[in-house]
Amino acid sequence: MVVFAFYVFDRHAECIYKKRWQDALPGAPATSLRPPSQSTVANAPAPARQSLKSDDDAKLIFGTVYSLRNMVRKLGGEDDSFLSYRTSQYKLHYYETPTNIKFVMLTDVKANSMRHALQQIYVNIYVEYVVKNALSPAEHPGGIGVDNELFEASLDVFVERVLNTQPPDPRA
């Protein structure tokens, strides 16, 4: 299993953390993650992809999960939530806490449900190293306070463990 990217959105709909594992995309641009609207050009090296700033990435992903979440709630009731969706290129996993923090992870299509993994990231990494860090602000405009070393290091370790079929990569 390969993890492509990981995003955290706060309750103000702002992307407060994002991380991409570029080298998880082994040289082939065709397997790169891209917004669903562009999946038709999957086989071409994607110049559009390069021009898409990673900031826009986060916005697109937020828009997607926000709309999906609302649709799921309309159809399935207030307590319903979607867990993941899959395209021919990637699988998007979603976990939202009752405090409206949204965790999104993009993996390859063969991945199992990552709901539990995302919850573990929230409980053991986000709460431990971001929320309980007394010197980090309670809100994280622009990601302030989230990108601390302990959080990043633990996230990396965790993702590598999840990526157990992949040989650990020093740059990951």
Binding site: T97, P98, T99, Y122, V123, Y126, V127, V131, K132
Partner: peptide, 8 residues
């Protein structure tokens, strides 16, 4: 902050 710890 406590709410996050509570939920965790």
């Amino acid at each position: 902050r406590l709410i996050e710890d509570f939920l965790a």
